[in-house]
Simulated assay, not measured.
Amino acid sequence: MSSPKTVRWGILATGGIAKTFTKDLLVDPQTRGVTHIKHTVVAAASSSSQSRAEQFLKETGCPASAKAYGSYEDFVKDPDIDIVYIATPHSHHYQNAMLALEAGKNVLCEKAFTVNAAQARELANKAREKNLFLMEAVWTRYFPLSVYVRELVTSGRIGPVARVLVDNSIASDPEAAFSDGKHRLVNPDLAGGALLDLGIYSLTWVFQTLYHTQDEKTRQPPKVLAALKHYGPTKAADEATTMILTFPRSEEAGGEAHAVATTSLRVATMPGGLKDVPGIRIQGPQGEIQVFGPAYRPERTRLVLKDGTVEEKEWPQPGPGKGSGWYNGFGGGKNAEGEGHGMFWEADEAATAVVEGRKEGKYEGLDESVLIMEVMDEVRRQGGLRYPEHIETTKYPTHV
């Protein structure tokens, strides 16, 4: 057996999602049955100060040899970085990813990929021009649970999917929780709102079950009908958005299929945090697939067939395990001891692609990422939501 290849990561930004990703990244891949690659972190950058990057490297347990940078421009010049993980707010993804691509770096960029489809197309074109790997970090697509659900769809056990219902909502009190208007969920200068931050997961489940599972040569973009409620205090972000998508298909493939994708800052998919409500239902004439837990980090599936058959599966996250003293989590939450958050699956895919010389992700290529941005563009157009020009622009560089 050949020894695993080590892929060297650079972490661009040092906020909460970067910490969660990096801690997961450094878990031994063998704990999840991965033996062909290893991950290491060779550099991290904070736009505010080098000392903040140094603190980040310590907090996440990176090797002592990892370098800290106080500027993204200096960071992307580091010759030891194989791939850059971009963890800034999505309002800044275009500028940050373009900086890394221009410097000749492979890129894994957090979701939502960009603010609009024009920016996504520019990034895809730049990556192809420079023959670099570029992938949107839609971590959920790489969970074994998601792979299983897609396999259920393509196996035909529920028949051709006729309808998908997905909600990803959080019961916050935005006026109280984000009273200064600066939080990424409501701030127009961070492309704030439910759609780009939360609704992307609703669309992820729609697309990975109703679009990605179709034949690449014949699948077609959906038609979109949307309703968008503006957030009162700013009128420049959405607090609730509902999307009805119609996917054209041949009669042989089941004919036209529908999806309803919803998101909200003010109501909850799972009131009180109870996980007995399936936020995702994938329905066909022979039954349905139900997915439990938040849309972004699902934990359980139930297959319910027309003949009364019920198959339930639990999908625990691997990690160092109990007794390890190791913890990870996100947004103030903490997972059980030794339980990873689930961000290592997308890291494994990105690293594998770099080692193999592939330029796109296996479970969501660049064209699909662009298409999903086009859908969100249309949703915002119908809802009359546009962000400031310096956030929407494709001009590079623009310092924001």
Rank of each mutant, 00 (worst) to 15 (best):
F133N: 10
T35F: 14
Y201K: 04
H258K: 14
S91G: 12
V115Q: 03
G16C: 09
P298T: 02
Y201G: 01
H183V: 07
D377S: 10
F143L: 07
A44V: 07
A353C: 13
E256M: 11
K126Q: 00
V147C: 04
G333T: 15
F330Y: 14
T263G: 02
K67G: 01
L12N: 06
D367L: 12
S2E: 13
F330C: 09
T60N: 04
T35Q: 11
S49M: 06
K235I: 14
Y363R: 04
L305F: 00
G10S: 02
T209I: 02
Y201A: 08
H212F: 06
G159H: 04
W345I: 11
V41S: 01
Q95P: 09
T88K: 03
E252S: 13
V153S: 09
G308P: 01
L145H: 01
Q95A: 15
A236E: 15
S169P: 07
K223W: 13
A261M: 00
K126V: 03
E389M: 05
N96C: 10
G273E: 06
V267D: 08
G319W: 03
F133Q: 04
H93N: 08
D74Y: 09
G287I: 08
Q55C: 07
D80Q: 13
S179Y: 13
A118N: 02
Y396Q: 11
E346R: 12
T154W: 10
T242P: 06
S250A: 12
D307E: 12
E151V: 13
D180K: 09
E175S: 11
N187Q: 12
G279Y: 03
E314T: 10
P294L: 14
S146W: 06
Q119L: 01
H341V: 09
D215C: 00
F143A: 05
T218R: 11
V310R: 03
T6A: 01
F113G: 00
K223E: 15
V277M: 01
L190I: 11
K105C: 05
S49E: 08
S3R: 14
T309L: 15
D167Y: 01
S91W: 00
G325N: 08
E256T: 13
E252I: 12
V206H: 08
K38W: 03
